[in-house]
Design a protein around this nucleic acid. Structure first.
Lengths: 255, 255
DNA sequence: AAGTGGTCTAGACCACGGG
DNA sequence: CCGTGGTCTAGACCACTTC
């Protein structure tokens, strides 16, 4: 038989998995659990920390411990259908959320910043040279879901709507294309990262110990990289899907 | 100023980041830290647990606490070059590791098992119907790196090398093609998952609290799904790269 | 045998949120 | 004000590794 804190964790995990404790429900207090297991606070708190690490619960100081919503968002990062339908990415994002019964919101912000090493090497510009950063904080069901920073070389953005501080309805990719920068492909890097920087924690409203997922897309014309889109997702809230090849005949959704 | 355990964690984190403590080095013992900070064991252990969650250290019972190797493996899950060069996936994997100065190893195992719900829905076979499972445990630098389970519908595998208990040199995709099952595309699902099941923890030699990344590839012919390849990676040890579109002119490597 | 991390007890004080 | 989780002290015993 495992040790006490593991038994407590296993018991609570079962209650959550079998639905006795549903999303949003409050768990027994630490005092309750101490009484129930005739244990001291240490193993009780260790069990709760384990579950918090698993993303099953959230603790709220002075209020209690609550079962976390477990509905990861599914996003098609590359989709056969879309490539052949000319929908703008922003619209695709919104319609994909709606299809999953989620409410999408976003805030925009435009800044001109010196390129960090990570941005410069991908856009192939000099470090510290100016790039346009368009930040989009996306919310799902009124909770922050991702921080998306898109970067453009300044020489490309200059004099275009890319410098607009607002959402560009037809999509930045279309703007780039009109300016003669037609994207022909992109490279996506997917990298889980252990707990985020403090500012990311705030933006995404993450508890400590919750990892994030970077999705870094570098888009190219036939000549050069023209766009870098850096998404940071809460790791336990996201599922990315890449569809490759000719899947016309295959359009069912795996679960 | 933050609380004690956060200061201890921050101090140790700095020592690791600035190289004072290098990969493989042993950290001060809990007793040392208690003396150094004139603290009790609780905040010391909490600090160490924080770092363990961040994937920075490993604790080894009775031996000490050690700085963890921090060199994520980069794998091209989809690559323009490869699609046009006809290298078998297994070879591509090995050569990619070699290019990063890593030593690759793998063990094979073949079993015939009833399809779980997750497998059945993706391969579009009945739940509990028989499928062929080929398990490949991959090691990098003599440490387990991923567990890869490939599943094939039994009617397709029957009478082919897919039932062989050994590695198939030219690759299973080639075998499938010879049998008339030519893959035309695939769907990849990328899903971070909070700490893994106990058996996965053992196979991947993961500490508690370390998340994993599922990469689930369902490959299709023009008619049906014929292959399901389910990779489980230690989340902090992997970076996946997808190259899409015509990137012939663009073949530099982002960092 | 000595030292290490893993587990657990029994207390304490605090800040914060809600009646 | 009271209950909650967050932090911390000061001990204890254990299993295991290393010498």
């Amino acid at each position: 038989m495992p040790v006490l804190h593991e038994r407590i964790a296993a018991d609570l995990r079962s209650l959550i998995h079998d639905g006795t404790l549903a999303a949003g429900d409050r768990l027994p207090t630490e005092q309750d659990l101490m009484a129930q297991y005739r244990a001291s606070r240490t193993p009780v708190r260790q069990a709760l920390q384990t579950l918090a690490n698993e993303g099953l619960i959230d603790t709220a100081t002075s209020r209690g411990t609550f079962v976390r919503e477990q509905r990861p968002l599914t996003l098609h990062a590359a989709r056969y259908e879309r490539e052949h339908r000319e929908e703008s990415p922003a619209d695709a994002y919104r319609s994909e959320l709606l299809a999953q019964g989620r409410a999408a919101g976003q805030t925009f912000e435009m800044r001109i910043v010196p390129a960090s090493e990570a941005v410069a090497s991908r856009l192939r510009v000099a470090e510290q040279s100016l790039v346009v950063q368009r930040r989009c904080i996306r919310t799902v069901d009124a909770r922050p879901s991702s921080v998306q920073d898109s970067y453009y070389p300044y020489d490309i953005a200059d004099g275009t709507e890319i410098l607009s501080p607002n959402d560009v309805k037809r999509g930045i990719i279309a703007v780039l294309a009109e300016e003669g920068h037609v994207e022909v492909g992109y490279v996506d890097e997917i990298r889980p990262r252990m707990p985020p920087q403090d500012d990311e924690r705030r933006l995404l409203q993450l508890g400590p110990g919750v990892p994030v997922l970077d999705q870094i897309r570098t888009a190219y014309t036939a000549q050069r990289p023209v766009r870098l889109t850096w998404n940071v997702w809460a790791a336990d809230g996201i599922r990315l899907v890449y569809e490759l090849g000719d899947l016309r005949a295959m359009h069912d959704e795996p679960r």
